[in-house]
């Protein structure tokens, strides 16, 4: 059981040092976001900020607003390009807020469940596990791991051999690196 003691807006403040409450809804993040286009994000970044404000302003609707923000596809479709954070006139780290929403969504088991969001989550998990286990990413193993997780066995099937021909894909893993300290540190930081 996870207890919800923190508002999302507070978590964003803690992690990024900037406050969604400062957002004045000018729309500059939405206007310059490469993923805020038809067929991609379902809720604009500007509206995500508004939901986080509503969560604080209207306690009676906090659960609902948090749910809307967490279960949107938007955080998962954010490419992390930082255009929003760079341009925000109020200095809100919007891209950083997207990180918090993704992490918090997984923690509360409350995220979008569309196929593409599951794919994106699968890739992140495969990638991070691989990084933490081997210390370095071996691209071929990453691709295989991802395909096994998602069942996209034949996507980009033609690219593999072509990359190999160019000497861009190595069959054997290269050096790995020791990550025991990293893993210990991650555990330590989890329990404050």
């Amino acid at each position: 059981m996870t207890t919800v003691s923190q508002t999302l807006a507070n978590l964003v403040h803690q992690r990024t040092g900037t406050r969604p409450l400062d957002c004045y809804q000018c729309g500059r993040c939405a206007a310059g976001c490469p993923q805020n286009v038809p067929g991609e994000m379902d809720i604009s970044p500007t509206r995500i900020m508004r939901l986080l404000q509503g969560e604080t302003a209207f306690p009676e609707k906090a659960v609902e607003y948090a749910r809307q923000a967490l279960t949107a596809e938007t955080p998962w479709l954010c490419a992390g390009c930082q255009a929003c954070t760079t341009r925000c006139p109020q200095g809100v780290d919007i891209a950083g807020a997207m990180d918090v929403l993704r992490q918090e969504g997984l923690k509360r088991r409350m995220t979008a469940t569309t196929k593409r969001v599951r794919d994106i989550q699968a890739l992140h998990r495969t990638f991070l596990n691989s990084a933490l286990r081997h210390g370095r990413i071996h691209e071929l193993f990453l691709v295989i791991g991802y395909k096994l997780r998602t069942g996209h066995l034949f996507q980009d099937a033609a690219l593999g051999p072509a990359m190999m021909a160019k000497g861009k894909l190595h069959l054997l893993p290269g050096k790995s690196a020791d990550t025991s300290r990293v893993k210990t540190a991650v555990e330590r930081l989890k329990t404050p």
Partner: peptide, 13 residues
């Protein structure tokens, strides 16, 4: 070691 890239900051601060 790997920097963690997008995936790490996306799902595990």
């Amino acid at each position: 070691v790997c920097c963690g890239a997008t995936s790490a900051h996306a799902i595990d601060h």
